[in-house]
Each structure stands twice: as structure tokens, then as C-alpha cells.
Amino acid sequence: MGELLTLASREVGDVESTWRRFVPSAALQRVDPRTFAFSWTSAAMPGFSVVKYRLNASVQSAIEPDGQLMACRVASRGGWVGTPRGDLNAGLPWLSLDDPTSARWHTRADVRAFVFDRALAEEEARRLAGDDRFALRAATTRPAPVDRDLAAHWERVFQHVAGSSFVPGAATPLIEVELRRHALHATLAAFSPAFGAALERSSQRRAAPRSVRRAIAYMEQHAHEPITVDDVAVASGISSRGLQYAFRRALDQTPTEYLRRERLAGAHAELQQAMPVSVSEVARRWGFASASRFAKHYREAYGRSPRQTLRGE
């Protein structure tokens, strides 16, 4: 389970000490303590953290992640964000990888961030891109978003991931894996033109029925575990991109859709047992962080709601 942390304070030192639990290089360089107030919420998972806080005060801060990849948005009127290479658009999210990044604002800021372990993020990025040579560095990423649409998508993904992570007991290990992958995909798409280009290339142009069969068998056996499509691809001896192509050609659906179908089937079987459980509990156990999305997919698959199945209707 992810470690949830909530904090409200009027002590200036609490901001820096709390941030350093997630980004050790975080530093507050100037703070006006007269109107200072601080509220923090975060969820720490293996190799990944989600951070959201509000800080009332005039502040200048700086970070220089070491062994980390951090995507952040500082929402504040009249705010400024910059790196040694130049100023960034303070109205958009930004990425910190190798260069130090500074920010300042007056009165109040709402800060939200994804923080990834760099080595694990790079390994997962290679699987997502189907490119074993892909590396997280200045040549493949940029501090500013590729475009505003992808920046807006990153914002929406953050709201979804934060909303799913900040509910006590909601983020099961299975859900945590999916949330981390979803957050990393959105971050790389927003800040890495090279990652986007890699997704456009197919590392395998021919369908691989044997690999598809292996993938199906693996998903059927492990759907109840926190596996991702990347794990399925590794087990099938094919790149993630190649597996996508093979599934499209052989089954006219994506591996993600097939894995979701298997998890729905597991949830369906559990609901049919009519044991004293809640629908939301079953949904979380099978990897669905949102009960409403679970109900939508369930109705599409079975023509009735999860509650109807639970009641034997």
C-alpha cells in the first residue's frame, strides 16, 4: 500500500523538511513568514510519489533532483519558473531532470508533482517505447511541454492519479502499478519528443500469433496480480509496441482491453458468489480505482450493473 501523508502547519521549516522526504535537494531560499500557511497531501509508492500542497506566502524555492525525474506545476498568479537555460512558462507544468529548477511566487501557490525514481522510470520507458536504447537525458526530454494539449492531458492525469492515490486503502498494489504507469506515460508524452516518436514506430511489423497466445495465457493466470502490459510483453518475448500491433492484427483489440476483460471476469465471478462484500471493494481488488469506471465497463461487458449481479438480479 502507498504511504499517505497529510500535514497542515504554520512552521516554515516544515515545508522544506517535508519536501526533502521526496526530493532531497528541495530548498526554500526566501520565505515571507508573515502570512505563512502550509497544507500538504502526498502518496508514496514504490519508485513513485504523488505530491499536492498549498503554500500561502511569498516564496522562492529550488530543486535539483538526483536520481529522480520530477514533473511539476506551480499554479500561482504572477509566478515564475526558470532553469539555467532560461525561463519557463509558469502557467504550464514543467520537468526537472538534470538541470536545477527554481520557482518563486507571491501570496499563494498550489503545487502538484509526480516524482519518479529515474532508473525505474527509464526502464519502464524503454518497455513502453519498445526501444531498449531509450534514455532519460537532455537529448530526449525537455523542461517545457511539447505542446499545450499534452500539458493539459498531464494535468488531467494528475487529477485522476491524485484522486485515486489520496483515498486511504483505495490504492491496492495492483492499482498502484497502473497509476505509476499512467503517470509516467503522460509525463513522457508531455515532455519527451523522442518518446512520442518512439511510440509512432513499430518495432515489429508482423503479427506474432504465438506471442499473442502466450500473452493471453499469462494474463489469464496473473490478472489478479499487479501486472501491466509491459509485464505481459516481457513474458511473451515481444516488445510492448510489438504486442500492441500483434493484438490489433490478431484480435482487433489492445492488450490493455484484453487484460481489463480478464479482470472484469474475475470481478464478475466474485460478485456472483453474493458474499457480504461491497462493489467498491471488489473493484479495487481487481485493479479499478474508480468505482464509476468499473461500473461503466462492467455494464458494457455484462449488460447489467455490478450491484445487480451482487443482488442476484
Rank of each mutant, 00 (worst) to 15 (best):
A267S: 05
R241G: 01
V277A: 09
A291C: 03
M219G: 07
H268D: 13
S290P: 01
Y258C: 00
S290K: 09
E281I: 12
Y298K: 05
R263F: 10
A217H: 02
L271E: 07
Q253F: 05
I238E: 06
A233K: 14
H222G: 14
G242H: 07
V279Y: 03
P276E: 12
I238R: 04
A246G: 05
R248A: 14
V279S: 00
T254H: 10
A246M: 01
R285Y: 10
R299G: 01
W286R: 08
S240C: 10
E300V: 14
Q273F: 02
A233H: 13
R248G: 15
A295E: 02
S236W: 00
G242P: 11
E220I: 00
E281F: 08
Q272P: 11
D252K: 14
E225A: 11
R260L: 07
H222S: 10
A223L: 15
Y302Q: 08
R261P: 04
L251Y: 10
A274T: 00
P306G: 15
A233Q: 13
R293M: 11
G237S: 09
E270R: 14
E270M: 08
A269S: 13
S290E: 15
Q221M: 11
A235S: 07
Y298D: 00
A295G: 03
L264H: 00
F288R: 14
S280P: 01
Y298M: 07
S239D: 05
V229H: 05
Y258G: 01
A223Q: 15
A235Y: 01
M219A: 11
S290I: 09
S292L: 13
P255Q: 00
W286A: 10
T254Y: 13
G303Q: 04
F288D: 02
E220D: 04
R260I: 05
R285P: 13
S278D: 08
A269G: 12
Q244F: 10
A265T: 13
Y245C: 04
T254F: 06
S240D: 02
E262N: 04
A217V: 09
R260M: 11
S290R: 05
S305V: 05
E281M: 13
L243H: 11
Q244C: 00
G303R: 04
V282M: 01
M275N: 15
R307G: 07
R261K: 13
A267H: 09
F294L: 02
A233N: 12
A283S: 04
F294T: 04
D252S: 14
A223C: 10
A217K: 06
R284K: 12
K296G: 02
R304Q: 15
H297F: 14
L271A: 02
R293L: 08
V234K: 01
R241S: 04
V279T: 05
R293C: 00
S280Q: 13
A250Y: 09
E225D: 07
H222T: 13
D230A: 15
E220W: 00
R261E: 10
A246R: 02
T256C: 06
V232F: 08
S239P: 08
A250Q: 12
S290M: 06
Y298G: 02
P226C: 15
A265F: 12
A274V: 02
R248V: 10
A267D: 04
R263G: 04
P306V: 11
A250I: 13
R284E: 07
S280F: 06
M219T: 05
G266I: 06
Q273M: 08
V232W: 03
D230E: 12
R249C: 11
R285A: 14
S280I: 15
S305H: 10
L243E: 09
L243V: 15
S239L: 03
A267M: 03
Y245F: 05
S236G: 06
A233G: 15
